[in-house]
Design a binder for these strands. Sequence first.
DNA 1: GTGAAAGCGCTAACAT
DNA 2: ATGTTAGCGCTTTCAC
Lengths: 331, 331
Amino acid sequence: MSPERMRREKRATIEDVARVAGVGRQTVSRALNDKAEIAPETRQRVLAAVAELGYRPNAMARGMRTQRSDVIGLVVSDIANPFYPAVARGVYDAAQDAGCSVVLYNTDADPVRERGALEDLLARSARGVVGFFYGTAESVLGEYAKSISLVVADRVLTDPAMRSVSNDFATGTRAAVARLLGRGHRDLGMLDSSVGVALDERRSAFLEACAEAGLGNLSARVVQGAPSIDGGLAASRTLLAGFPQVDGIFAFNDLMGIGAVRAALELGRAVPADCAVVGFDDLPMSALIHPPLTTVRIDKYGHGQALVRTLLTEEPQRLVLPVTLIGRATA
Amino acid sequence: MSPERMRREKRATIEDVARVAGVGRQTVSRALNDKAEIAPETRQRVLAAVAELGYRPNAMARGMRTQRSDVIGLVVSDIANPFYPAVARGVYDAAQDAGCSVVLYNTDADPVRERGALEDLLARSARGVVGFFYGTAESVLGEYAKSISLVVADRVLTDPAMRSVSNDFATGTRAAVARLLGRGHRDLGMLDSSVGVALDERRSAFLEACAEAGLGNLSARVVQGAPSIDGGLAASRTLLAGFPQVDGIFAFNDLMGIGAVRAALELGRAVPADCAVVGFDDLPMSALIHPPLTTVRIDKYGHGQALVRTLLTEEPQRLVLPVTLIGRATA
DNA sequence: GTGAAAGCGCTAACAT
DNA sequence: ATGTTAGCGCTTTCAC
């Protein structure tokens, strides 16, 4: 075979369909797009020709003419991070329902990559973008939002024109603190994420809840780390070394929480007796580790769906999804 | 604000760039695509205009003219299944390196959805598709391969013209059986996947390895189930009920393996003493469960990269990636 | 080395 | 209710 791989004959165009159906191009277009009035009989003839030729409209030609495509961009920091796959599935299913395709972007929270994703989507005349932008200033996102439909996930926004779907981190955090307190743990500490802008809802709520409970200002006991198992491990070691009396840890997310459990165990502490841990997210793995992690569940799939639905609804909107404390063994 | 959201002024076109740079459209195109010879000075002028206007080529217009786009389709059965995210990241990174975007498709192993993904990609004149097709006959895939560049993951293909990247399931399975045998387990059973066509490498190798070890024909001890934790749980119960003497289980994947561990524990069996388990894949969660799962590791990220690299290399190719036994506590 | 013309496949606007 | 004209933004072909 030649170096050029053999391809099937060229795809049928709208012109071919028109010829076979014995009508004009425009009539075919009308039949396909349910536009205006067409004689039912004519429509049938067109549809028959479409089926016969196996015709499918060329997405790029259509997009070129209409100046928009049915593409929705999904921007995440890393799809391999177990938090995102369920969100992605929700985004996909909702996009599918709306007849849209999903283009994936991994940014590693890098501002350059985040912009790159937005630029790429602009170049494709995308229907819109949803995603987690941890590295880009709100003002920049706002600029892009003028050119492309954008719904931001999990960020506190000040511009009322920008749309977002977030989770109720404040309530979740308070529930986590209450859980720790209710189980008799009075010396709390927190593992916070060191990456990402506008991600301080959890820390603020933690500090407030602790102050309200008469624990004083615990700022010193909030230690930052990468939002990963290793990051949680390292941060926990730091926390427990600096404050050996800490007997309850609230983690930014489950990955850090899992690291905290491991760190506590390594230090010979009983979990939860000597050191309780509450995470955030409720990852698939969190129920399986030993001991099973108490956490605040985010409806990741629903989050994904809500992002797309908000995107497709043009009105400005600010959605906050409810979260649920899932009590397991670590607290 | 009007119902129509305010948008930034229209994007600059190649014409705008040409005007600003004081050259013809074609010259701009040449400068951007590193085509033919252009006076270095002219190129500079063009590039300056591009920067000044923030110009980015319209992807659809370009694709329309060239009859191809820089889109690569990634077809998986469910991105929320913890096996795929790492593959997806590998695909994304390799695609990114090649200047391509990734469009995601979830099929749930449904033949209709698998075809739908292929059709959609055809309609977008995609650069190619890589993915896991568990529901489509090879002949059908072969037909599509004539129209679109396709690399199939994890399937045994008979048509030598079709390209694939797979993992060494046979060797991995033999290593798993050897591990079980080496630890003194002689009554083996297997949990096989009930979904997917052309996925019997693991079962065949298991049966062969057992026969070679003098264990006889163990076909009756291969029980099928959904390739999930629950599926593994159910299948294990069936297996252990029918063959109480089984003291070693080889699972189709880690999810089923985790289900097996849970089933054994529920039945009051010690793991691995009374019932050892070896999985396949090595998911992030597998090392974290209790007891940690012994498994055969697949280089998921590398698999993803290899799929795209094979796609971009036009020669027919059949790649088989090496796997590694990871000894942990369950066997 | 550069410009002009043509046209990819589709649909909006206008005619009939 | 249907056909015709035009043109989306780009690159290929062919002049110069």
